[in-house]
Every structure is written in structure tokens, then in C-alpha cells.
Design a protein around this nucleic acid. Sequence first.
DNA 1: AATATATAGTCAAATTTGGTCAAAATAAAA
DNA 2: TTTTATTTTGACCAAATTTGACTATATATT
Lengths: 154, 154
Amino acid sequence: MSISDIIEEYLKNILQTNEKQMIEIKRSEIADQFECVPSQINYVINTRFTVERGYLIESKRGGGGYIRITRVEHQDEFELLDAIIKIINPKVSQQAAMDVLVRLQEKKVITTREMKLMAATLDREVLAVMLPARDQLRARILSAMLTTLKYNKE
Amino acid sequence: MSISDIIEEYLKNILQTNEKQMIEIKRSEIADQFECVPSQINYVINTRFTVERGYLIESKRGGGGYIRITRVEHQDEFELLDAIIKIINPKVSQQAAMDVLVRLQEKKVITTREMKLMAATLDREVLAVMLPARDQLRARILSAMLTTLKYNKE
DNA sequence: AATATATAGTCAAATTTGGTCAAAATAAAA
DNA sequence: TTTTATTTTGACCAAATTTGACTATATATT
């Protein structure tokens, strides 16, 4: 067992007890506690608390800073969304993107309102950058939105 | 929690109790109360009571001076969205855009899920273009989404 | 009027956090 | 025993907060 494994176990234990969905830590405190350098905490988080493994990481620097780890649930539509994300990268046309949204709405993965919201961001007039950069930007934006859906029940 | 967070909470509490729309404070009194330098109050106001978050700040120097914090009110959802669109154009930072989303979610204009969906599109990593174009692109995207909300009651 | 006093504002340096990246060390696999 | 992957470390970076010197403005006093 490496120190990284021990820190991972420690953090997961806190998360499990009391059914907590979220913990906030101070990086330097954990580092002190396990007598390691602060950046080792980043290493543990980057390798063990990834979004693929179902964790969301947020943090703030400066006085009162913290690292927040939140447990997120896989959704039923996870595989579907994952497949779509693969298809639309690294670039996607406005038409193809719209097709994806309509399909998701028909399958009740997103509401009509969400579809309109998402569609608004994919418009070439809104993005207003030259091709081919525009289709790449659209792919990044749509991927980002679909990724949040992978972990969020309505 | 930093001192700034505590002062923010304190001021918001006063604003909430009694449905007050406005409070007037003496900068030095608050500074004394929380044992900080007076300019820290300016810092709290500049970072936490911004127009994006729906506050108006007025002040007066000299004897009998004060800082007045007003929660801005809107007739209806349509007018609120319109006002926000004006504020965020022609450019908006990621922080200011997030402030707007959090406010809309608190006011139940959007759901938490919609907030996350929208937030995903505003991330600087996702937009991935250089400043200042990025802040302009973000403004266009957010405006487009808010505009669809103007005409889509849930 | 002129001057003194009482407020608030600005700005940048110092401080307090967390982030990144790559080299060095160690462990695991071939 | 090489080669490869993982972990550990530390130097340097970035962001948020805290602090204080200096400035600006309104009111009170002379």
C-alpha cells in the first residue's frame, strides 16, 4: 500500500460514513496529517477521484481555500451519452448537433426546454468564429453539456 | 470560511430578515465588529455584492457617511432576464457569468440541472479561445440561452 | 472662507491558500 | 535484468484574501 492508497482510503471512508455525498478538505492539513507534500493530494485526486470513477472535484485558492470532493451517480443514459460524445468529437456541424439534441429529447433524456437551451449555444451566429474552429468549438461545448448529463438526474 | 465569507453572510442575513430591500452600514463599525481593516469591507462588497448577483451599491463619505446595499427587484422573469442580458454584454467573465446562473437558480428561474448544463458552456477550458474574444463569446452564448428562457416558461 | 474632522475609496504588497509540471525514486511487468 | 508504469518530491505558478498607506469627499468648526 502506497501513501496515495492510504490517503485515497481515508477520504473514501469519510465519504461513506454518514452517507455524506460531499467532503471539503484543506490540502495542507491532509498533507500534514499524512506527512507528505501538498501536491501529493493533487496526485491522489487526479488518479483516484476522477469523473470516470464518479467524483466531482471543485476547489478554491486563497484564504479559506478548500478542495471539495462530491460523489456523483452514473445515470442510466451514461453509455448512450458517452457514445454520442465520441461521435461528435473532435468536430460537429450545427445540423448534426441538432440531430443529437432532437434524438435525446425524443428519448426523454432531456426536456424540450433543455433542448432549446442547448440548441441556442450551437448556433453558428452565436459561436461566430470561422470554420473549422467553429465546429470544434461546438463539439467542445456540446460534449461539456452532455458530460454534465451523464451524472445528473433531472 | 474566510472573514470575507463571514461578513458576506452577516450582511445577507440582515437583508433577508424583515424582507428588507436595503441596508445602510458604517464601514468602520463593521470593520470593528469583525476586527478587520475597513478596506476589507470594500473587498467583500466588490466581490460579493455585485450587479451580477443583483445588488446595487451607493455610498457617501464624510460625517454621517454610509454604504448602502440594495437588493434590486424586478417586475417579472422577463424583465429580470432582460436586465441580466444587458449586464453581461458585450463581454462577461466566467465568474460573473456563474454569479448570474447561481442567482437565477436561487430565484427558481432555472433548475439546478439547467444551471449545470449552462455552466458547462461557460468554462474557459471549453471555450478555449484567447481573451478578450473569450469573454465576448461567453456573453453571446449566455445571452442566447437567456433569450430562449425569456420565451419559455417551464 | 478656511481649516479640521470624519468618513469612504483605491491600489498594490504581503499572505494564504491550491495547481502544474517534470525530475527523481520506486514498483511492477516483460 | 531491462523496460515501463506509478508514485513521490519540490520548484515554480495562479488565485483569493488580508492589510495598510495614501487619496478623495462630505460635514463640522473656527
